[in-house]
Design a protein around this nucleic acid. Sequence first.
DNA 1: CCTTAAACGAAGGGGTGTCCTCCGGTACCA
DNA 2: TGGTACCGGAGGACACCCCTTCGTTTAAGG
Lengths: 207, 207
Amino acid sequence: MRADARRNYERLLEVARDVFVEQGPSASLEEIARRAEVGIATLYRRFTDRDTLMHAVVLTALNGTIAAAERARQDNPDPLDALAAYVHTVLDLRTSAVIPTLLTVLDLNEPRLKAARATSARLVEELLAEAHKTGRLRKDVTFGDIGLLLTRLSQPLPGPIPAETQHALTHRHATLFLAGLRADPTAPPLGGPALELDDLQQLQQDT
Amino acid sequence: MRADARRNYERLLEVARDVFVEQGPSASLEEIARRAEVGIATLYRRFTDRDTLMHAVVLTALNGTIAAAERARQDNPDPLDALAAYVHTVLDLRTSAVIPTLLTVLDLNEPRLKAARATSARLVEELLAEAHKTGRLRKDVTFGDIGLLLTRLSQPLPGPIPAETQHALTHRHATLFLAGLRADPTAPPLGGPALELDDLQQLQQDT
DNA sequence: CCTTAAACGAAGGGGTGTCCTCCGGTACCA
DNA sequence: TGGTACCGGAGGACACCCCTTCGTTTAAGG
């Protein structure tokens, strides 16, 4: 693969990720090509059709979060620190929102997708389980709480807010949220459903 | 105004609010009419043009949050309870995200808009000031933290999640977040910019 | 019940944007 | 510097959107 071809391929993946988050799964492919500063033919040459592009975007995103989870655990002896590191790292990847967005449209039985999804979920569950074992994490916090936090914070804010500002605000919100996760007998109960992994996955694919 | 006319007027406002949040300020007006189960002519009859509709949506939204703030303070002697009540009430209105979305496009000098915006902001600042006075709210929490929380939680989650589930998840996230706002010497510092009211307003209108 | 004005929905013309392919030009790499 | 892998843009068919015009329906008072 020639150098310029690889550059365009990666740039398309990044731009597609952002555009799909902003405009949903039916976003204009020409818009993606435009923002990537690439001819429309180049997009179709690299990705046969919309489906191929979406699969590539999701797989890249899932692999990124898997790597982030593994690294967070290795780098942090304390499970609570590991959880916080995981959240902040994944936010920097800006990939969390695109996963549920595109999964609502893709075929979840595709083997590579299924495997990546399972691995990613398992790693986070392990991270949570270890944090729970320390007793310093609220007992009622589940996979869904972390997953939805990441999804929400990876969606763009309305208006023309500069990227760096948005980035800083996102991490600030995450820090405040994580502070609320610490075990504290005086904290008010949550109420509402405690979404487990399975519930969340089912919600995302019900059509 | 005939009864059916009033029904359609209100229905259009509600649907427009949701569609503008989902698709941005340039959302299709025909889509709005369709979802409101109303002919396109009816929309144009009630709202001369896109701008008129957007103004009506924002003003209705701002008035709702103003009422919510007043009620929250009256009903809750404890300022922290009032703040929490305000957040949960405004989330039920589902109006927070549409305000910044449309303000990026509207003329902020329109008198009624300017006034409503100022009143709404002032009330929240007062709510926060009173909460700070109790010493039980993190000192570094500002207007921007509450405003952005409301904006983020008022945006829809990707995928076909039922309205009631979405509603419950939103309140759950809010409760967890609010728990993180309590003053606690062991809590990690926030880092990043502490957005005050003025900063936030400027960010939203810079084009 | 019946009238009538107010309110309604649908069709349509002009215009813009999107999808996807074909093909002549460009620039990377040896 | 040559050759080939790669690129960008034009373009036809199609869908959707904006906004107006017009014949039909329906709420509500006498």
